[in-house]
């Protein structure tokens, strides 16, 4: 929990003329569980994209493990990305293939093309066992040979988590993991993410709408609004007024 893992230094991301993120600086430590909160369109997903290298900073610099991300060559970037597990809001699974194939897809960049195709088409007992154990941790081991399109939304999310964990990641990123869930299920899901991160010693970053749901499951909260950093606090030090501020200005805008 002590060593710095990600550092953003005055980072801006521009799409055309509009800033998705503007002059954001923050540090995320190794093994930390962080929630990124803010209203819709605040730049939460962009921030996650910066961490996994999918989005490049227009200005400023992103450091990963003390190295400048912009100086990474193609191979180094691929290696970094392959060690960051990303759970998408819409899961981004292939619906027409089996759960095990979706999970095993995560490592197919590591082998020769022939071996990759073999693993995709015909997995051996050893590989199946590994995926089975992974799914068992998430409580959906009986779904291993089901097709993804047969699964419910919650089960799909767990498959997406399994795929991310199968990457053997050092970081787990989740984009709006509880966006469409009721409070009880949302708590359960956040607890799952939190326990996984703790057990596997992963750095966890989740973008959320409401931080209240994540109480007890996160170490730190980063609040952003309109692409700007509003606060960056340990969750224990977070003031209710700060949270209120994050959303109130938007409320006013709606009233006007």
């Amino acid at each position: 929990m002590s060593s710095e893992f990600y550092r953003l230094e005055n980072v801006s991301v521009k799409y055309g003329d509009t800033y998705a993120l503007q002059d954001v600086s923050c540090t995320i430590f190794s093994g930390e569980r962080v929630a990124i909160v803010g209203p819709s369109g605040a730049g939460k997903s962009t921030l996650l994209g910066l961490l996994n290298g999918g989005i490049q900073a227009t200005e400023g610099e992103v450091y990963v493990d003390l190295q400048q991300l912009s100086r990474f060559d193609e191979t180094a970037l691929q290696t970094h990305r392959s060690r960051v597990g990303f759970v998408y809001q819409h899961h981004n699974l292939v619906p027409t293939i089996r759960v095990i194939q979706n999970v095993m897809s995560a490592r197919l960049g590591r082998f020769s093309l022939f071996e990759a195709i073999r693993r995709f088409v015909y997995s051996n007992a050893e590989e199946q066992e590994e995926v089975y154990n992974l799914l068992k941790r998430l409580g959906i081991e009986e779904k291993i040979f089901h097709f993804v399109e047969q699964l419910s939304g919650g089960q799909r999310q767990r498959v997406a988590i399994a795929r991310a964990l199968y990457q053997e990641p050092h970081t787990l990123l989740a984009d709006e993991p509880v966006a469409s869930l009721d409070p009880a299920r949302a708590r359960e899901t956040l607890k799952l993410f939190s326990t996984i991160a703790k057990n596997d010693e992963l750095t966890l970053c989740m973008s959320l709408h409401q931080v209240e749901l994540a109480e007890g499951y996160i170490d730190r909260v980063i609040g952003i609004r309109d692409g700007k950093l509003v606060f960056d606090r340990l969750s224990s030090e977070l003031q209710a007024s700060e949270l209120e501020e994050l959303y109130t200005i938007q409320d006013l805008a709606i009233c006007v």
């Binding site: 999918g54 990305r81 995560a106």
Partner: peptide
Amino acid sequence: GPAEALRACGLGSFRTFIFA
């Protein structure tokens, strides 16, 4: 979406094409 996810796992263009 699925292709995007596999690219983030470090798969190249051709592999995301055939596997996703």
